[in-house]
């Protein structure tokens, strides 16, 4: 399967998973007024897994398109797009900081467990997802009055997203390995 086709399929797959996740709003323990209800946002994984050599402008466009599709599905009109565009912009710098050589020396490769290793990949994904959630929830709350709730929601949602990202990687990297 060629790289663009794989990425397009991944886009729709992640969007479909996100739609299902919206339906299942999570709560870590069920105390009537204790822990906030939250939804993990897994769709930024699409931007995280694009090939190394994707130019920045294309990343930004794809980030905007992904964000606006999720916005259309969730009635949030631009909040997801703003967070995802920021994530797409920061991606190149984060990868440059983590990798020994410049990005254009990795042709036809994409960030993943096989190319980066578990710890660097989780650092990369964790950092960017945290930034994305931070921006998204800050825009959604639109005030720092309730900062405890805001940070609880960010941490809970980002942690759950990261767990889902690990699940995704475990599911899909092994398949590629067995085929090779």
């Amino acid at each position: 399967m060629s790289i663009p086709v794989r990425n397009i399929i991944r886009f729709f797959l992640l969007l479909a998973v996100q739609v299902l996740l919206n339906k299942i709003s999570l709560r870590w323990w069920s105390e009537p007024m204790g822990f906030p209800v939250f939804v993990p946002y897994i769709y930024p994984l699409f931007i995280l897994l694009l090939p190394f050599e994707t130019p920045v402008w294309l990343l930004l466009v794809l980030g905007f398109v992904t964000g606006i599709s999720v916005d259309a599905l969730m009635n949030t009109g631009g909040m997801h797009a703003a967070a995802t565009v920021l994530l797409a912009y920061l991606r190149t710098n984060t990868l440059n900081a983590l990798l020994p050589r410049p990005l254009n020396e990795y042709p036809n490769l994409a960030p993943g467990v096989k190319t980066l290793g578990w710890i660097p990949f989780l650092t990369y994904a964790g950092f960017l997802i945290l930034v994305h959630h931070l921006v998204y929830f800050s825009i959604e709350f639109w005030s720092f009055y309730n900062i405890g709730l805001l940070s609880l929601k960010i941490i809970a949602s980002a942690t759950t997203t990261l767990l889902l990202v690990i699940a995704y990687l475990l599911l899909f990297t092994r398949q590629v390995a067995s085929r090779a």
């Binding site: 980030g63 905007f64 606006i68 259309a72 009635n75 949030t76 009109g77 631009g78 797009a81 703003a82």
Partner: peptide, 25 residues
């Protein structure tokens, strides 16, 4: 792009706005 997002968001801060992107499409 971020400014574009900000414009879209500002439309949703009121009940009347949010005509462009919503799940009734």
């Amino acid at each position: 792009l971020e400014v574009l997002c900000a414009i879209l968001i500002s439309r949703t801060r009121t009940i009347q706005g949010n005509d462009l992107v919503n799940s009734s499409n």
